[in-house]
Computed example of a mutant assay.
Amino acid sequence: MGSDIAIRVDGLGVRFRRNRRGRRSLKDLFAGSTRRNRPGEFWALRGVSFDVTHGEAIGVVGRNGQGKSTLLKLVAGVLLPDEGGVDVRGGVAPLIEITGGFVGDLTVRENVRLTAGLHGMSKAEVSRRFDDIIAFAEIADFVDMPYKHLSNGMKVRLAFSVVSQLDEPILLVDEVLAVGDKAFREKCYRRIDELLAEGRTLFFVSHNEKDLRRFCTRGLYLDKGALRLDASISDVLDAYNADYNG
């Protein structure tokens, strides 16, 4: 992979089941070829290929159920593909399902240390950035309260604050800016602007056209699990709007 490539997606495909079991079981994985469809399976993504260079800001659009969040999870390494591959050069800061991984019975202080550590931040880094994390989240009066007693808004603010402090070069964002009050959203916008100004790479899944136009220069339009269009964010949004708002 070239030195300027941050993410390479090549012939990517992933399948799911249309039942409660979701992804294939271990029994399924050991039973025959993974390329042969079985009853009840469908391709959430297939044949998707593109490159993202370092410092690019990419917006991913499409209706619900077209594979956007699945693609983001594949890039994050949360899911594994059934076909093709994803090659990511550099660590990722995943702002996806951001309240996941926090432990309800632990205090806010303990959760910050735990979650930041799981994302690769050293104990010294956590100590050095702890006050900034708490200040950004605006929960200084609650650091020794059990996490489960925080409001949903506080939980989102804390999670965003922790992940946005990571030094990873690639930022993965999935609709996180749709939550929280207006003042905090503006705070998040400014933080993402700062990260982009530092040369970070942004991979952003959203239905919010205003946010996509603000942060992104290039777009990927997913439709029925396939890459319909890879072009400027303006062209991608125009095509999407023409298909579904015309």
Rank of each mutant, 00 (worst) to 15 (best):
D131E: 14
G104I: 01
R89V: 11
D105I: 13
K187Y: 01
R8V: 03
G90T: 06
L172H: 03
E168A: 11
D230T: 15
G11H: 00
A93V: 09
A239G: 07
L26C: 06
R185S: 03
H149Q: 06
F215H: 10
R46F: 08
I96Q: 07
I5D: 04
M1W: 07
R38A: 05
L95D: 03
L220D: 06
R128L: 15
L45P: 09
M154D: 00
R35P: 02
A6I: 04
Y244D: 03
V9R: 01
L114D: 02
E125T: 14
P81E: 07
S127N: 15
D235K: 12
D193G: 10
G65W: 03
R63D: 01
F102T: 00
I139N: 03
V156G: 00
K182E: 14
V173G: 01
G101K: 05
F215G: 10
V126I: 15
S161F: 13
A57Q: 11
L114C: 05
L222T: 12
K27S: 15
A76D: 10
E138K: 07
R191N: 14
R15Y: 01
E56I: 02
A135Y: 12
M121Q: 10
V78S: 07
L171D: 02
L150M: 09
V52M: 01
I96W: 04
D10N: 07
G91D: 09
I98F: 03
R15T: 00
E168P: 02
D105W: 10
V75F: 04
L196E: 14
A93E: 09
R36E: 08
G77V: 07
N245P: 10
M1N: 06
G62C: 04
D144P: 04
V176H: 05
L79A: 03
A242T: 12
L212A: 09
G67M: 06
Y147M: 04
V163I: 11
S127I: 15
V48R: 01
L79I: 08
E194W: 01
G11C: 01
D4P: 06
V103W: 09
A159T: 00
I5Q: 00
G47W: 02
A178E: 04
L118W: 15
E175D: 06
L71P: 06
Y240L: 00
V163Q: 05
R36V: 11
T217P: 10
A57D: 12
A137N: 14
V60C: 05
S234V: 14
G120M: 11
W43E: 01
V78W: 09
A124W: 15
N19Y: 08
I192P: 09
M121Y: 07
D105A: 13
V173Q: 02
V103P: 03
P39N: 05
M1E: 09
D10R: 10
R89T: 12
Q165I: 12
S69P: 03
